[in-house]
């Protein structure tokens, strides 16, 4: 191990030619960890092709340094190529902590690099902090979020963690922040012939208002039923929000796509207001919405676990109550 304390790194993630929100969210947490003594400063790693202009974006959101690797071979994400470059960079600069987005690609890349370096990786962390002994405490969910466990990585470095979008708040943009951009190369790939070939990436147009950015989330579960689902969309429209759903509602085909799924295998949301209808409150769902601002739930079953994690609850049949609420909102808007 080097004598000097290394940095806290964030592996920036791209979607098309933009940075993902979670990359910026991680920068906020990385700075906090560095401030708690977890690292000397905050660095971001930006791998891609023709992406240099994004370095500034990372700096104004909290990166002190940006390692920039631009190479045509990194134009499309591919686990072996990216892992080669990143593992090489880590060996050269000895970061203390490396944070990844727990996206599909980020999860894969973090696991690949951890295996190459033989170091520890905690997945889908819901909290990260430095304890009074200077250890990094990585809090991970288990059993669909029913239980949380602390994970330590005491011997090996760097300590690596992945975090889902929406877990940590996005730091404010500080336009006057300055930082250093350090150009690195993908020279480690010289002579390497990948057994894989990334052909292309196909993305649907993301919804105009992604669930994780909506100020109000109207979520529906089993109790809404096929016949009640359109009320949710209407309500979300009234509130300038978006519709979310539970796993059963998705499986029934009531929700339009998997983009609406909140919870363990879906999105983590923290809207100003969360309105749940006909949701029993399984751990899988709660883990994805528990950090919302105000939580209101409507459920027919007075004993539904969801009421225990609500600020306000009402016992009612969701599909009968929704039109009543819509009518009340209409009256209110007319006043």
């Amino acid at each position: 191990m080097p004598e000097r304390l290394g940095a806290v790194w964030v592996i920036a993630e791209l979607t098309g030619n933009r940075l993902t929100e979670v990359s910026l969210e991680l920068l906020g947490k990385a700075r906090a960890l560095a401030a708690q003594g977890g690292g000397s400063h905050t660095s971001a790693v930006l791998m891609g092709n023709d992406t240099g202009s994004l370095a500034e974006e990372l700096i104004v959101h909290g990166a002190d340094r940006v390692f920039l690797i631009e190479d045509p071979r990194l134009a499309l994400y591919q686990n072996d190529l990216h892992a080669f470059v990143l593992a090489d960079l880590i060996k050269k600069h000895h970061p203390e902590i490396v944070l990844f987005a727990a996206s599909y690609c980020g999860s894969e890349l973090s696991a690949t690099v951890a295996a190459r370096l033989g170091t520890g990786l905690a997945a889908h962390c819901t909290d990260l902090r430095i304890d009074d002994r200077g250890e990094l405490v990585q809090v991970v969910p288990a059993f669909g979020g029913t239980v949380l466990g602390d994970i330590f990585c005491r011997e090996t470095r760097p300590r690596m963690a992945s975090v889902k979008p929406g877990i940590f708040p996005k730091p404010e943009r500080e336009a006057t922040r300055t930082g250093e951009v350090i150009k690195e190369t993908a020279a480690v790939l010289e002579g390497y012939k990948s057994p894989l070939k990334a052909v292309r990436i196909v993305r649907r147009q993301p919804p105009e208002l992604p669930l994780e950015k909506a100020p109000a989330v109207v979520a529906g579960g089993w109790g809404v039923g096929a016949e009640g689902w359109h009320f949710l969309e209407k309500l979300a429209g009234e509130l300038g929000g978006a519709v979310g759903c539970t796993r059963p509602a998705l499986d029934e085909g009531w929700a339009q796509s998997e983009d609406a799924l909140i919870g363990t295998s879906g999105k983590t949301v923290r809207p100003r207001i969360y309105l749940g209808f006909g949701i029993s409150g399984s751990a899988h769902h709660i883990v994805g919405m528990k950090d919302s601002g105000v939580v209101i739930n409507i459920n027919q079953d007075p004993d539904a676990p969801v009421f225990r994690i609500s600020d306000y609850g009402a016992v009612a049949d969701a599909k009968e109550f929704l039109p009543v609420l819509l009518e009340k909102i209409r009256e209110h808007k007319e006043e």
């Binding site: 170091t119 949380l148 602390d150 994970i151 090996t156 709660i286 225990r308 600020d311 609850g313 009402a314």
Partner: peptide
């Protein structure tokens, strides 16, 4: 390389206030 520490239950700390009355009142 990783070691488990303590297990704990998520803390939600919500007030769980029940809204009562006719549907119209609750709305």
């Amino acid at each position: 390389p990783t070691q488990p520490g303590e297990l704990h239950l998520p803390r939600h700390g919500r007030k769980a206030e029940l809204l009562e009355g006719e549907p119209g009142d609750i709305a």
